[in-house]
Nucleic acid binder design. Sequence first.
DNA 1: TTGTAGGCGTTATCAA
DNA 2: TTGATAACGCCTACAA
Lengths: 345, 345
Amino acid sequence: MRHRSRRAPAATITIKDVARDAGVSVATVSRVLNQTNQVTAGTEAQVRRAATALGYTPHAGARSLITRRTHTIGVLLPDLYGEFFSELIRGIDQAAQRYGYHCLVTSAHHREPQLEAVLRSMRGRVDGLVLMSPEFTGAVSARTLPAGFPVVMLNCKSSESRHHSLTVANYRGARAMVKHLAGLGHRSIAIVEGAAGNFDASERLRGYRAELRAAGLTRRPELEVAGDFSEESGAMAARQLLALESPPTAIFAANDCMAVGAIAAIRDAGLRVPDDVAIGGFDDIPMARYIAPALTSVRVDISALGERAATRLLTLVEQERNDPPTHDIIPTTLVVRQSCGAARE
Amino acid sequence: MRHRSRRAPAATITIKDVARDAGVSVATVSRVLNQTNQVTAGTEAQVRRAATALGYTPHAGARSLITRRTHTIGVLLPDLYGEFFSELIRGIDQAAQRYGYHCLVTSAHHREPQLEAVLRSMRGRVDGLVLMSPEFTGAVSARTLPAGFPVVMLNCKSSESRHHSLTVANYRGARAMVKHLAGLGHRSIAIVEGAAGNFDASERLRGYRAELRAAGLTRRPELEVAGDFSEESGAMAARQLLALESPPTAIFAANDCMAVGAIAAIRDAGLRVPDDVAIGGFDDIPMARYIAPALTSVRVDISALGERAATRLLTLVEQERNDPPTHDIIPTTLVVRQSCGAARE
DNA sequence: TTGTAGGCGTTATCAA
DNA sequence: TTGATAACGCCTACAA
């Protein structure tokens, strides 16, 4: 008959219950729990006893309402597919935990209105934002975020410089790989591009083109093939390149997954890597050294990227200051193995 | 001279500002924003105009304090390393977004006290919990979570049945793989075990042993080699197995990464896969079909696991009822490719 | 249909 | 050292 066939209201015990049981005021309980040592050892003991007896835990939401600190950072990612993001989140979470913060993770905001809605929904939930989104512009920021709200951008267009940013050295990494291949004597070097619209992808393409020019090689548009970072797209791209009238002798895949797909396709076509076609990848995923032939790649320390981003953000949050934006670049390393034909082990 | 070389207090605009500008009370603003259609079209328009003009967004924390709904679910994982977790998070986040919920992700809680602290810190932050932790027992639950708090456990010991749970069919999957290898005529089948203490690892080992017995094969302890799910541990395990007086003719690696490492080690030893040693993996990561030889594996739909877990949890949260706990098992599929010697393409 | 006022669980500011 | 009491930003009876 009552309105309560529903779940009981989660018998929530509050600071008041502790105060009552300890025979003190809520203010005193609060003081004990917040380490503001203005309490007698005796009363402190009483309070602690009552608190543990009741199994009391402060309500984070209520606390943050008056404190204006949620001790949570928001992490906004364009996607969650693949090792890149798990590594990134791992790094971010690691740094956050070190500071005693939580991570609110969200992904997939394609169109601008959706992005704005997501950013808005963060109000009152997070103290700052790690943002990885090509769609995030200064205008969006102004419309959705309070002025001075701490933000660190990840792998975004460098033009957006009003916020702090961290970027992987995609351009330099790609140049290093192409330079290496050219140094091995390759004159026709192809690229399998990353996903369209992806910032990493376009930067790697830019590096590829720049280094071709620097090496005095002519750029052939038919050697720039679309891909989407998946193994399958790498295989398709390789097949397309092999079917050319004059196929390339080397292929730079914009990530390791596509490189693996390309190697499989080349093998299926009856050709050998690196003897007939040399292959280079990007990212240096753990598996790169174990496949056959071992993959030459551009190493990126993704979790370090995440850690630095979170650390930067948390510094901003805790300092409560408007430092002038910094723009860091995370360096990459060329790792030479068998697939490019340089190392023969 | 002022106290404010610090950041301005983020000029936060509240419901009061909107009410003032719209010339109505805060209650009316609230009603407009919460779709309780008890407002004149005229005043509603005024309120909306004022709200957008100010760029107002309700404060989620304040709202949840009175609503007793955070619209956030907590996700507690033992780790964040590797594709498994990114896929899992992807599935969880997908379901959460469909329900309009956020995800608070945390990892790495090794010892019990730390786990309890983390669970406690969730109070007032989340409406429910997706929990993947071997250390989470009924006792921990009772000490840290309010009675009736919605929880869905992932890949945990089935003994813990007071909460809802979802589990991958590790045991059955492992049996299917071993049965397949035995069916190909292999009499000495080795296993490279997963990380010690890991539930998936122990279940896959259990399945391996059970199927050996069922196939009438004698179990040889030296054919059970330790691993930790990494490529490197798979390679080490394979080397160890090849050094045996009578090495196995087939190796079941408890995940694909270790299988890749094992294949590399076997090749380095001058032997061929599958001719000299057959290999089977577990998980069927995207790359499995592209390596050489293509990897036979047990397919797991991880993102589906995450999606189902989150959906189950959100059903509990929204229904506000104490349903009797359900215990679902996510099935696996054997995917036969070249590495086991069955398919020759 | 609208406004007033109380309360959600904390912390912060005063007096005492 | 301690205790009232007023915020924090919002929702929701209840009254008008």
